[in-house]
Amino acid sequence: MSQEVFVVAYEGDDDSGSLLEYAIERAKKEDAALHIVHVLEWSPYSFLTPEEVEERHSRRKEELARAKAVIIDPAVVKASDAGLSATGDIRYGQVVELIAEIARQKSAAMIFVGRSGSNSISARVFGSVPLGLAQIAPVPTVIVP
């Protein structure tokens, strides 16, 4: 039987440490691989000034490079050091939809998501990532406090 994959919706902020540690711990027990995903919030319908339109392509390159160097690479290294097979991915779009889609594509067994961000006002009004995943995730989802 092939190895199970756990998808980690990884924000990379201060609170994400415990999420990653928990996911690593679970993956070790289950002998699963980790797929760590960082999503850069992006809407194709937001409005840009002409200068922003022009700079967009180079900004995107910078953002991707930064996310890779600061967020994803260290996380993948941490998981690999723990003896797991780990991969990383950086995507643009809506966090909830993308994580659900990636979980489907990877035929993931589980999704791990942090609870952080659930207390902000916008999260209360529009719903947070864990709440969104609770509604549309195709596989069991663990919300790590």
Binding site: W42, S46, P50, R56, H57, E63
Partner: peptide, 15 residues
């Protein structure tokens, strides 16, 4: 979808 994060056609039109 792999080009997400680039300026969309909608954004170009709106600008």
């Amino acid at each position: 979808p792999n080009d997400a994060g680039e300026v969309s056609h909608f954004q170009a039109l709106a600008t």
